[in-house]
Design a protein around this nucleic acid. Structure first.
Lengths: 205, 205
DNA sequence: TTCTAAAATTGAGTCAATTCTGTTTTTATG
DNA sequence: CATAAAAACAGAATTGACTCAATTTTAGAA
């Protein structure tokens, strides 16, 4: 029985997120004042803090939506991977990266990453760590799949390899969002170059 | 002719850093108020901001000292590496990690990392990126050294491999400082496990 | 020694996130 | 319905990083 209270709650959540997302994009995370978000969402400052522990958690909610979309898109690749290790990795990573700036600007990513290390125990901090874990697992699942279909050597520690690939990709992505001038094609090329070492070590000849 | 002014300047720098380092350790980065640092260092708030652009830059100065020490210690390993690829990497990385909590608490690391992604163009942001680069280069130099002495295959892209190893280590370290309960031996073991994949791919049989 | 411009210091004031407390709204109960 | 407890709201007050205009100190020329 979704009462009035529950409906109003969902509605306010939505309004706050929409107002924040718009403002973050327009004015940047730092430039967006809670006061303005509150006005835009037609709630008071106090209410925002009733819904989110701090400004970072609002951004966190937006980031989570983005990453979950990416994870969904990745499932397709794991289910039917391209027919060689190099392309399979490149395709999956490509999905992650190409998607990354859909809803979030680089500045928003920088803030999100910063908050997740700064406050690892806040709701968003924990959520972000979980999202990273999911991405790592998805890469691990791809490796496992490639081993199943006989494209990758079965004696490789798939889990460790998944972590290695994710960690490298993630660091490269962090450097990418840190430089506004950095471009996606160059990022992908760098990651491919590094993965080549791994690919040659694990692909069945 | 180091005049009075230059001497006072150096002295104030030192006092600010010492006061800040003590307070960051005691009260944590967030818990340390600029006001308190100023009082402890016997300068005014304004003076602190004359010496450092913001609170993060003070922490940055401390982090830089730490990392530079680590880089120095690493030089020895690169000059005379252990006689196989696995041990060589483990020794160098061991130096980095074992040193890491000498002056800096995990909380201080978290803040430093956060600031470096949040404000990549601030003095500290740029310095931090440069330090990462130096560490990457040092790992690259170790690989090159191992190739020279015939322990590693010469056809490997040493630069790309250095980045890969650093990026993975760094992400593992980030996760390490995010969890207060995480311990150094487990961190080293995880990194070793991941590097094993690489070692088997690049060591000359 | 005296004087002046440049450099450095000072701390009260500004700004924006977050907290806190009193008020209003909703729900459940008789 | 009436009402009391619980939940949510509002916005003024607090807090702490950072700024800036006024003041003090230093360097070095006359």
């Amino acid at each position: 029985m979704s009462g009035l209270r529950a409906r109003q709650k969902a509605d306010r959540h939505r309004r706050i997120i929409e107002a924040a997302a718009a403002l973050f994009r327009e004015a940047g995370y730092e430039g967006a004042k809670i006061e303005t978000i509150a006005a835009q969402a037609e709630v008071s400052i106090g209410t925002i803090y009733n819904y989110y522990q701090n400004k970072g958690d609002i951004l966190g909610a937006i980031v989570s939506m983005e990453v979950n979309e990416v994870l969904n898109a990745g499932r397709g690749v794991v289910a039917m991977p391209p027919a060689n290790v190099g392309d399979a990795l490149d395709t999956l990573i490509g999905i992650y990266i190409e998607h990354s700036l859909h809803y979030l600007s680089k500045e928003m990513w920088r803030q999100a990453m910063a908050i997740s290390t700064q406050l690892p125990d806040s709701p968003f901090g924990q959520a972000y760590t979980a999202l990273d874990r999911s991405l790592t697992d998805q890469i691990g699942a791809l490796i496992a799949r490639l081993q199943e279909v006989g494209l990758a050597r079965p004696d490789i520690d798939g889990m460790a390899l998944g972590e290695l690939i994710f960690n490298n990709m993630n660091m490269m992505f962090i450097e990418f969002v840190k430089r506004d001038a950095a471009r996606i094609p160059e990022l992908r090329a760098s990651i491919r170059r590094q993965n080549r070492i791994l690919v040659s070590a694990i692909a069945k000849e």
